[in-house]
């Protein structure tokens, strides 16, 4: 199970193709591109399993070639950065 970091720990500001995310706990600014904002929005605070997240992204964004391994790699990066958590 993965979940997004609690909303009150992040400041998310869309800019253009990039989104600026301020991580309050570390004071680090992340400049991220798609699909990171979409993943965080889809995960929400309650969390979901990898297959459920894949299904939700497919449904919301018309993904044709959803790749579970690539998505897991992105999630692990987000967990390492503090932007997502393993529930």
């Amino acid at each position: 199970m993965y979940s997004a970091a609690p909303a009150d720990t992040l400041r998310i500001v869309p800019l253009d193709a990039f989104t600026a995310i301020y991580h309050r706990a570390s004071g680090i600014t992340h400049l991220v591109a798609s699909p990171v904002p979409e993943i965080l929005a889809a995960l929400g605070p309650d969390g979901m399993t990898l297959p459920a997240l894949t299904a939700r992204l497919v449904e919301r964004y018309d993904l044709l070639d959803a790749d579970g391994a690539a998505l897991r790699a992105r999630l692990d990066e987000l967990v390492a950065a503090g932007l997502a958590r393993i529930a």
Binding site: L15, D16, F18, A20
Partner: peptide
């Protein structure tokens, strides 16, 4: 210059 690049 796009906003993301400006921020950086």
């Amino acid at each position: 210059v796009a906003p993301g690049e400006v921020l950086m």
